[in-house]
Design a protein around this nucleic acid. Sequence first.
DNA 1: CAGGATCCTGAGGGATACTG
DNA 2: CAGTATCCCTCAGGATCCTG
Lengths: 127, 127
Amino acid sequence: MIDRPTPAPLPADLFDRPDCAGAAVPFRVGDKWTGVVLRCLEDGPRRFTELRVPLHWITPKVLTETLRAMERDGFLTRTAYDENPPRVEYELTGLGRSLLAPLDATCEWSRTHLHEVAVAREQYLAK
Amino acid sequence: MIDRPTPAPLPADLFDRPDCAGAAVPFRVGDKWTGVVLRCLEDGPRRFTELRVPLHWITPKVLTETLRAMERDGFLTRTAYDENPPRVEYELTGLGRSLLAPLDATCEWSRTHLHEVAVAREQYLAK
DNA sequence: CAGGATCCTGAGGGATACTG
DNA sequence: CAGTATCCCTCAGGATCCTG
């Protein structure tokens, strides 16, 4: 386990910026949320509620399902600390981190080509 | 338009081989079928029915929807020849071809890491 | 051959409320 | 705080039949 400084808080508009492909990205990883969760965890471990913020307050049920599936597939670890109030942290494994490569390739494509898709759609409608 | 020799027929088991990630791939491009259609077209233009073969005889409705969406987004062109019986060919555009890069990155990940996912799932079940 | 028209289902995803 | 437990609802995707 790498000794890592506390990562900066996740900005609430992390996936809501002009330079972000967001919902228009034609790629999805696994289910609807796996990709963005991956991005949220790349700087270090995060807590449950912390993750909900940039995910537009995704419902606990859906986030739990997503995290459980990713844990099952070996993409992240779930660590529960026996405290009160309870604290649980999710952290990427090496396998999960390896997913960042194809994810980056996808985001890179979006950055360079997504506007062409928008143009193509307009031309298609104009016909 | 590049002058291209007639591509080899699409093998029916193109996505049904032991070395193919297939349905286990945790990535999807756009909808369920866009990625595999992309792969089917990378060697040159293909006809409607020709595409259905490796796609396990996907129903015409679903294939039409997929192709229309990809045409609308500028990923492929649809060329109808005025013959009898009718002939229609689908061919990747430059934009569509550019999608092969992130798609390759994804497939490469699957090749090298997919078995780790299988192992992780077994360990998860064993707990 | 290349689809259009219809009908149908199931599973992913969401809202709300409650709990240790 | 970190979830469970229910209920609900859309809609991608499939089955089937028909046509220029």
